[in-house]
Design a protein around this nucleic acid. Structure first.
Lengths: 181, 181
DNA sequence: GTCTATAAAAAGATAGAC
DNA sequence: GTCTATCTTTTTATAGAC
């Protein structure tokens, strides 16, 4: 519960940014240390192995998701609209952690794949009471996945075809009409 | 136009399979050669650099997509239903090429990202006349992206939460009702 | 066309000074 | 806690025999 050391967080931030921008291949200990402004030895004091670094990222994701699930359940505009709107990447802490863990999962990291399934199940549990049936829940989840997926292409730095503004408004209306209770 | 050498195709198949199963990190020249049953020297005769290997995969994807776009346009059950049903991975040649190129894109390969955007645009062009408006087209494309994304987690070897069978039937009905003309 | 052998660089990790 | 230096292994690529 104590506040984690600043350098440790900076290393984790750098690793996360590298995964999103360069993928697993570019996310080396060297590059991470450089990005965090520490030496490789300094990095390895906080994370003894690369696996420890990856594990820490999964823990960060779980904490952020738990907070978001609570926010989704309590959203005034309704969970479905809130969920879809926040699926369009805002480059906030949760988006970054989610994308970075997705990179790890696609690199074959089994723990990362499991974490993503857990996360998805948590969101589904919140949305289920607000959808007509199983197909409607599938629809909402898949549109959200699609929004994330498009943001994920090109490392988030290439403006994808993700609907924004009025296009997003229209999409939300369409999904709510098709899926909402 | 001439039939490509068999060994060359086997190398490309192995590289594709490695990208899907292990991600960019595990997709080394060594592992690719091993998977194809050739030596590293043999591999490098066909693909002088790793970049050449990646480029060949992009060309394979483009050819497969062009064929699929034609099939989508001519599908008896209608382009939307055909498009969504074929978005659930069947482990066919197109699915594999698409997933493998997605791995490259997430590794920061700009040409791969561009290829995925091109592919997506081609499908959108075919589906546009069969959707009510822009939001409806977004809905169909995003559900398809979501279906692919879920298959992509865990390298395609972990049974994801992707709807199948009657669940997929219900989803197709829901999307067609919401988006179809 | 396909192989073995090897070079050159980059990767993860350890040791020990400060 | 953070650093430099070093070791080992892996990865991409080249050279040249068959």
């Amino acid at each position: 519960m104590s506040r984690p050391p600043l350098a440790r967080e900076k290393v984790l931030d750098a690793f996360e940014a590298l995964l999103i921008g360069e993928g697993e291949r570019g996310s080396t200990l060297d590059a991470t240390a450089r990005g965090a402004g520490v030496s490789k030895g300094g990095l390895l004091y906080h994370f003894a192995t690369k696996e420890a670094l990856e594990q820490a990222l999964l823990e960060r994701l779980h904490a952020l998701v738990d907070a978001d699930v609570a926010a989704t359940a309590a959203a005034p505009e309704g969970p479905i609209a809130y969920f879809l709107r926040t699926s369009v990447m805002n480059d906030d802490a949760l988006d970054r952690a989610l994308l970075a863990v997705a990179r790890l999962a696609q690199g074959g990291n089994a723990a990362a794949s499991e974490a993503l399934r857990d996360v998805r199940a948590k969101w589904a549990d919140v949305l289920r009471p607000h959808t007509r049936d199983a197909a409607a829940l599938d629809l909402v989840m898949l549109v959200s996945d699609g929004l994330y997926f498009n943001n994920a292409l090109g490392g988030g730095n290439v403006p994808g075809p993700t609907p924004r503004g009025s296009a997003l408004d229209a999409l939300v209306v369409l999904v709510e009409r098709a899926a909402g209770v």
